[in-house]
């Protein structure tokens, strides 16, 4: 990859990757570090061929791994019971802050799955490549994530239980 090609890829993907990382991490403090490290590692991986999609998937995969590593470190430092446990559920999700807060209640892997599926519009196969997991696992993991999100939304009375 040439310097110019990398510059183009950086312009094309950095904004959406920052948004993705920010939504999964849930705080602004580490976003730039993760995004930069993801670009750096993807560039140094020296991927063969000119497949932009392959490059983008690898970039998201590296970023997701960095996020999961960071989440594990934080979990280890703070103790698992303090992570992602809201003190009291907000009554509804009408404003941006509450939407973000509800999303943060999901596990990082669930957030990544839902983001890639719904926001990036990736197929199960593409998600598997982005997250570095098996294609068959993605379907089950995605259903679990959707069930978790559905339960969170039901708890806030967004729609009634069946």
């Amino acid at each position: 990859m040439t310097e110019r090609e990398f510059g183009d890829a950086y312009v094309r993907w950095s904004s959406s990757l920052r948004k993705y990382v920010y939504r999964i991490v849930g705080s602004a403090s580490d976003v730039d570090d993760i995004v930069q490290e993801a670009f750096l590692r993807t560039l140094r991986a020296d991927l063969q061929g000119d497949d932009e999609e392959q490059w983008r998937r690898y970039l998201y995969r590296v970023a997701t791994n960095l996020i999961v590593d960071q989440w594990r470190r934080q979990k280890h430092e703070r103790g698992s019971e303090t992570m992602h446990e809201p003190a009291s559920p907000p009554p509804h999700y009408e404003d941006e802050a509450t939407v973000a807060k509800v999303f943060e209640e999901l596990k990082p892997r669930e957030r990544a799955l839902l983001w890639l599926a719904y926001v990036e519009g990736e197929s199960h196969e593409e998600i598997a490549a982005s997250l570095g997991v098996g294609r068959r696992s993605v379907r089950v993991m995605l259903i679990r994530a959707k069930r978790h999100l559905r339960d969170l939304l039901q708890a806030r009375g967004i729609f009634a239980k069946s």
Partner: peptide, 9 residues
């Protein structure tokens, strides 16, 4: 509801 929520996210 999930799709709407994700578009809002």
């Amino acid at each position: 509801a999930i799709a709407t929520f994700m578009s809002r996210v």
